[in-house]
Simulated assay, not measured.
Amino acid sequence: MDDFLEMETAVKRVFNSFRHEVDGILERKMTGGEFRVLSLIANGINRTTDLSKKLDVSASHITAITDALVANNFITRHRSEVDRRIIVLELTEEAKTFVSSIEKKKKAMLVRRFSVFTEEEREQFQVLLKKLAE
Rank of each mutant, 00 (worst) to 15 (best):
E34A: 03
I87E: 02
E21N: 00
I86H: 01
K106D: 02
I25E: 01
L128Q: 09
E121C: 05
V127P: 03
K107W: 06
F125H: 04
G33D: 14
F15T: 15
I25N: 03
I45W: 11
G32Q: 15
M7A: 14
D67V: 10
E119R: 06
F18K: 12
E34I: 02
A59V: 02
I25F: 08
V57M: 08
A68D: 04
D50L: 07
H61G: 10
M109K: 10
T63S: 13
I86P: 00
V116N: 13
F98S: 01
K130F: 13
E94T: 13
K105Y: 03
L5E: 11
V22I: 14
K12N: 09
L55E: 02
E21A: 12
A42P: 05
R79Y: 01
A64L: 12
D3T: 14
A95P: 12
N72Q: 08
K96L: 15
S100W: 04
T31F: 03
H61T: 15
I62F: 00
S58G: 13
G33R: 14
E120A: 10
L69K: 04
K53L: 15
V70R: 01
V127L: 12
G24N: 15
S101Q: 05
T76M: 06
L128W: 02
K53W: 14
K105M: 04
V57P: 00
A133T: 10
M30Q: 10
V37H: 08
D56R: 01
Q126I: 13
F18N: 12
I65H: 08
R28T: 15
G24E: 12
R28S: 14
N16C: 05
A108M: 04
I45Q: 05
G24H: 10
K54N: 11
V11E: 14
A10W: 14
T76I: 06
K131G: 11
E103D: 09
E121Y: 01
A95M: 07
I25G: 07
S115C: 08
T97K: 15
D23I: 07
L128S: 07
M7R: 09
T9P: 00
E121V: 07
L129A: 09
I62V: 14
A95F: 03
V70H: 06
E94Y: 10
E8V: 11
V88T: 12
E134N: 13
F4A: 07
L40P: 03
T76Q: 03
A133H: 06
E103K: 06
E119A: 05
V57G: 02
T118G: 08
S115I: 00
K130Q: 15
D2R: 14
E123Y: 10
R85Y: 10
H20E: 12
T63Y: 14
K29Y: 00
L51H: 03
F18H: 15
T66Y: 04
T92E: 05
